[in-house]
Every structure is written in structure tokens, then in C-alpha cells.
Amino acid sequence: MEAHVIFTDKLTKTFGSFTAVDQISFSVAAGEIFGFLGANGAGKTTALRMLSGLLKPTSGIAMVAGVDVMRHPEQVKRRIGYMSQKFSLYEDLTIRENIRFYGGIYGLSVQTIREKTKKLVDKLELGAHVDELVLRLPLGWRQKLALSVAMLHEPRIVFLDEPTSGVDPLTRRQFWDLIYEAAADGVTLMVTTHYMEEAEYCNRVSMMVDGKIEALDTPGQLKKTYNATSMDEVFRKLARG
């Protein structure tokens, strides 16, 4: 197993004359929880879309789970999990149907899907609701289910794009328990969030400003470097420039 599951070198994306992502170079280790922060429009989403094989880079290198994003974007998609606040599960399908659908997309066998469904539902204690529409589930349950579904095919990397926006504080922490648990199993998690206290839960944090990575370190070291008492303060100092 290679040490770095994500590796980029001068990864760049331009749209016409606008450089959305400007030569970013970083690497992420297996089992790491990596926070990906930045103001709106800083280039986070563009970078995430390149790393997940959805958007072709203009130049530079990105290796994700050992695959070159530029040359084999389809292989990248198969090896990663992705979950966002905006889109995760089909609301008008039941829990069971969602699991079956995503299992099918990832090419799992009927037998595997059946086993996975049972395991997942038991773990999240959703047994009594497995045939209910996702629409009927509280948001917190949905987000926990969505993370588990995004990891159905046992990816080594999961991208989480603002997974906890709007979720109540108690459920948010239960969600982070799941993130920690996955990391302990060796899964790499790349997380974007607007909650600065969640940045503290990451092993390392990168801060994007105007398409560049302005800072990358552990939360503790970032606070020292920028002489700040909280990550919120680090963010404000960096984003304001």
C-alpha cells in the first residue's frame, strides 16, 4: 500500500481567463481526516471535482488511490466514495431501495447487496424503518445513512462536501463519530465544512484562498503560526489576506 492515497503536483484548472485552481500541491495519507477549507469561490469545489474524476484538470498531476485522474477518471470514480449535503440519497426511494440502487451502480452482486443492507441497517439501528421512504427520515439519520451508502463499495477514500450543514449539534457529533470510525479502519476522508470547530476534528487542514493553498498543517500548528486562539480566527486572518 502506498503511503499517500491522494497526491497532487501543481494541479490547475482554468475556465477561460479565470484560474479557479492555481497549482496546488499536497498529499494525504491513508486513514487521515483531511479538512479542506476556504471561502466561497476559493476553488474548493473545483479541486474536489478534479480529484473525484468529474472534471478534467487543465494541467498538473493528481493521483487518487493510485490512479491518474487526468488519464483514467472513470477508474477514480469507482475507487472513491462521495457524499454531499445537497445530494446524497433519493428521497422518494426507501432505505432498502437506495442501498440496492447504489450497490448496483457500484457493481456489487445481489448477494453482497443483501448482506451489506443487513449489516448497515443493524449498525445504524434502522431495522424498523428499512422500507420507509428516505423523505420521512430526520435529516440527521439521512446524513448518517448517506455516509454509509457512499462507503458501500468499501472505497479507500471518501469525499465529504459539507456533510453536516444544518444538522443539529447532537447528530453532527454522532456523524463525526462515524468519520472517526472510518478513519480508524484506514479510510481516508477529505471533508469540507463551514463549521470551524469541525476543522479542529481533522488531522490536518488546508486553507484555499483564490485558487491557491495558502496554509496546510495540523489545527494546533495553524493556530500557533497565525497567532490565533481558534480556527475561526485562522480562517478570518487568511481569507482576508
Binding site: 476556504g38 466561497n40 450543514s165 463551514h194 470551524m196 480562517f235 481569507a239 482576508r240
Partner: peptide, 10 residues
């Protein structure tokens, strides 16, 4: 404040 970064939110 939803969907707005911490700087704009402040």
C-alpha cells in the same frame, strides 16, 4: 448565514 463562508457571515 447558510452557505456563506465565515468571513461574509461575520
Amino acid at each position: 448565514g447558510t452557505g456563506v463562508d465565515p468571513v461574509s457571515r461575520k
